[in-house]
């Protein structure tokens, strides 16, 4: 059972931690760094609640060992907005359209959508569906989540005409 000293950047802050090889990135974030917005659901890659961005790409933090993240830049929900500041457009979209009910799956979905919109600011319905398909939500039926994503697209593009809100 080997232990390793790793250095990684989480939400712009560098951390150096001593970790057992078997520690997952999710457990590192939650239990060592106290970043508990990243939720753990199934812990084998199916539900998507633990999704974070690893070097800009969505990653299941339960399917990534902390040691694999040596040198990586991680973004979690906590890094999207200042606690006292404005919400990130994706968070604002979820707020406006009530894209959640219990909220357990929301942090992972928000991070996936952040990545999607940074890659494609105006995604097709199919692209949105493919992204949301990687997340289990047992409350909403996804309709409000899709509306929230559309709202986030609109907010990011800077067009604020309410007439444009369709779908």
């Amino acid at each position: 059972m080997s232990t390793h000293t790793i250095t990684l950047t989480v939400n712009g802050r560098e951390h150096t931690e001593e970790v057992e090889a078997r520690l997952t990135l999710a457990d590192l974030l939650r239990e060592r760094l106290d970043l508990t917005a990243t939720h753990l659901g199934c812990e084998h890659g199916v539900c998507g609640a633990c999704t974070v961005l690893l070097d800009g790409k969505p990653a299941r933090s339960c399917l990534t060992l902390a040691v694999q993240a040596e040198g990586a830049k991680i973004r979690t929900l906590e890094g999207l907005a200042d606690p006292e500041g404005e919400l990130h457009p994706v968070q604002q979209g979820f707020w406006e359209k009530h894209g959640m009910q219990c909220g357990f799956c929301t942090p992972g979905i928000v991070m996936s959508v952040v990545e999607l919109l940074e890659r494609d600011p105006d995604p097709s319905d199919d692209e949105i569906a493919a992204t949301l398909g990687g997340h289990l939500c047992r409350c909403t039926g996804y309709v409000k989540i899709r509306e929230a994503v559309r709202e986030a697209v609109r907010l990011r593009s800077g067009s604020h005409s309410p007439q444009e809100i369709r779908r």
Partner: peptide
């Protein structure tokens, strides 16, 4: 294959 969030890794 699985989902985009899996295919990324």
């Amino acid at each position: 294959v699985a989902h985009p969030q899996i295919r990324s890794r």
